[in-house]
């Protein structure tokens, strides 16, 4: 992006992976860039189209088990996202998307499917009868300088982190990666995976700003975040009240 006229925001496969309001993350990144005078070109890539390699920020959302398998099959045949990440593009992947960018996950036919290997994680099925559904509150790795994450999760899968990544956050409520070690999500370089939807940026605009900072390489002017902040406060209060 640096020295370029436009920030290119790429939303991968809305036709398959947009089950939990995932468009929200794209809308929020777009808006927060524009409010700072950054011109944005949003590119929605349907699953029969090639993923462009020249994007600055890539988003992949959540989806049901079958679309997740179809998306993984199509992305494995397309080198676009891998090339973009290799040259330093920013990527946020949520839920099914998070599993796809790891080394492997279990599909709707109970087969182990290879992922894209862009994040050193492996996903599998969680214990039978346990689906991770509900509000999540999680303290973010202090290195990233973000306030606690608030969001909603809904997944059967669990994700194990390899040595090449760090947990994005530690849950104080909810399941996160579902591995019973309190970890939620993972990140390495400019690639983040998380189980939080909501969509995650509606309650955590700081996450949108983190992606924008990585992609533009310049500090961002602060925004007046009245509604985001009020929503955050209300959700934090509700989750803490439910936990106590």
């Amino acid at each position: 992006m640096i020295g370029m006229s436009k920030l290119r925001l790429v939303w991968i496969y809305p036709d398959l992976l947009s089950t939990y309001g995932d468009q929200g993350n794209a809308l929020i990144v777009e808006r927060r860039a524009r409010l700072r005078g950054i011109d944005v070109e949003r590119i929605d890539v349907r699953s029969d189209q090639p993923v462009p390699t020249s994007g600055d920020i890539y988003l992949i959302g959540g989806g049901e088990d079958r679309p997740q398998r179809l998306a993984a099959e199509r992305l494995r045949r397309d080198p676009g996202l891998g090339q973009a990440v290799a040259r330093g593009a920013t990527l946020l992947a949520v839920c099914a998307g998070y599993q796809i960018i790891g080394h492997e996950f279990v599909d709707d036919l109970d087969r182990v499917e290879p992922g894209l290997g862009l994040l050193d994680v492996k996903s599998g099925r969680g214990p039978v009868g346990r689906r991770c559904v509900g509000e999540v509150l999680a303290d973010v790795d202090p290195v990233l300088g973000l306030p606690p994450l608030s969001g909603f999760e809904n997944h059967q899968g669990v994700t194990h982190l390899g040595p090449g990544v760090k947990p994005l956050a530690r849950v104080t409520a909810g399941f996160g990666n579902g591995t019973d070690d309190g970890s939620e999500g993972a990140y390495a370089g400019r690639v983040i995976g998380t189980y939080l939807h909501g969509p995650v940026m509606s309650r955590n605009p700081g996450l949108a700003d983190l992606l924008l900072t990585w992609a533009t390489g310049v500090p961002l002017t602060p925004l007046e975040d009245r509604w985001h902040e009020q929503l955050r406060a209300e959700r934090l209060k509700a989750v803490r009240a439910a936990a106590s």
């Binding site: 939990y20 309001g21 468009q23 909603f152 939807h197 909501g198």
Partner: peptide, 9 residues
């Protein structure tokens, strides 16, 4: 339903 993410659809 306790998840409001559909508002973004």
């Amino acid at each position: 339903g306790k998840d409001t993410s559909w508002l973004w659809d």
